[in-house]
Write a protein that binds this DNA or RNA. Structure first.
Length: 378
RNA sequence: GGGCAGGUGGCGGAGUGGACAAUCGCACUUGGCUGUAAACCAAGCGGCCUUAGGCCUACGGGGGUUCGAAUCCCUCCCUGCCCA
């Protein structure tokens, strides 16, 4: 039995139905991957997280290296034992933090711009608080300010100690305001890091290489060909997606057309409800996104009728469940009024209930899409 | 009845003659968030005018001093503590 098996390819789209096998169980793809950066589904117990129909989760190398340190987790029996999560796990490599703590923080941007920006990152630019070198990146610890270095070698060692089933190559996620010269230089460096990640890889875990290249078609295709030709177990599609969601699907297609079809493809950090069906139809097998957990703590519920801001005072009079079509424990037992009361009172249980519902909503939304692919509708 | 302290925007609480429509915090309203430095961040928050800006009403009530008062004086009302 191989690591990844494609069960069905849609004839209506590029969507695929697959099964990912790990020593901690299988994952039915396409699958949503909840984010558990600090080895926790924020505000939930692992038992509650399992009840959200989550199949796996992705934790973060950078943050767990800082706190509590990979040795602590290794001594605890690995990430899964440490966090009492018996299902499959992934770890991100720490490469995203080059961006999020670097140019992302400097210019206040995410991976997708809301509109045009005047600033442009030139070929020699360096972020204020991260120093990027050929060997890796020097960070300033967000915990105590000390300098620390993570490169492909360090990332592979840390991820080996953390012990997730699937790990990612060390890369630099580029900014949506990076110029082409910068993006090309960074891409070539990330390619060298990809080769080094393979070289330092212990082989006990599945390793995914990451495609970069930003918004530039030639760079994206070049990256997909280069990374796609290396002996990775799967691929992550990373980086920025320009200044409009309209262009994102095109960028994803450039890459997917170049990748070996038999290996799993993970779209890194993308997956608002509006995106999910489109990216699956494009041929994405796995994707992670902070939206359900992060927005839950801000008071938002994702529902079949859109995103609701549960902090709005009008919901105090609303005795309906968050989503009348949802079968989750939260929707079966609690009213919008109660959840709004909890959020407006600063009670953490409000966040927990919204996190549980949102994860259940995302997971069942994707389950429904899998059924659609199986039935030939998608 | 006497003594002391105090009454400022929805709340708490600064300010004690001009830089005050009034520091700051909370609450509230709106906006942002896509491999999580994120239970966070930003803006607004007396009324009116479309903005720069301007006008009006305001620091318990009333009266006064002053070019000018939330700030000084008089008086009344109210609150808290202490003494009878």
């Amino acid at each position: 039995m191989g690591f990844f098996r494609i069960i069905k390819e849609s004839d209506k789209s590029h969507a695929r139905l697959g099964i990912l096998r790990t020593s901690h169980g299988i994952v039915e793809t396409p699958a949503f991957v909840p984010v558990a950066t600090q080895a926790v589904f924020k505000t939930l117990t692992s038992k509650q997280a399992r009840e959200t129909r989550s199949q796996l989760a992705i934790a973060n190398t950078f943050h767990l290296h800082l706190k509590p340190g990979e040795k602590t987790i290794k001594r605890a029996g690995g990430l899964g034992a440490f966090m009492a999560w018996p299902k499959p796990l992934m770890t991100d490599s720490g490469g995203f933090q080059i961006f999020s703590l670097g140019f992302g923080s400097d210019f206040g941007t995410g991976k997708i711009l809301k509109g045009k920006r005047a600033e442009k990152i030139g070929i020699e630019a360096q972020p204020r608080r991260v120093e990027i070198t050929e060997a890796g990146a020097w960070f300033r610890s967000i915990v105590d300010g000390t300098r620390l270095f993570i490169g492909p070698k360090e990332s592979m060692k840390i991820q080996s100690d953390l012990g997730a089933d699937i790990i990612f190559a060390f890369d630099e996620c580029t900014s949506p305001i990076a110029g082409k010269a910068y993006t090309k230089k960074s891409l070539e460096r990330s390619h060298r890091w990809a080769e080094l990640s393979l070289a330092y890889h212990s082989k006990k875990q599945k390793l995914f290489g990451i495609i970069q290249g930003g918004k530039y078609k030639d760079l994206r295709k070049k990256s997909a060909r280069f990374i796609g030709a290396l002996p990775f177990d799967g691929f992550g599609i990373g980086g920025e997606f320009g200044d409009s969601k309209k262009n994102m699907m095109g960028m994803i297609s450039w890459v997917l057309n170049e990748l070996p079809p038999e290996k799993p493809r993970h779209l890194l950090g993308i997956g608002h409800p509006d995106d999910i069906k489109k990216i699956i139809r494009a041929g994405i097998d796995l994707f992670d996104c902070i939206a359900p957990t992060h927005y839950a703590r801000r008071g938002f519920a994702f529902t079949s009728r859109g995103r609701l801001d549960m902090r709005k005072i009008s919901f105090l009079a609303d005795r309906k469940p968050l989503d009348s079509r949802c079968k989750c424990d939260v929707c079966r037992n609690y009213s919008r009024a109660y959840i709004t009361h909890l959020m407006r009172s600063g009670e953490i249980t409000g966040m927990s209930l919204l996190t549980m519902h949102n994860l259940y909503y995302f997971n069942t939304f994707v389950e429904e899409i899998r059924r659609g692919i199986r039935a030939g509708r998608i």
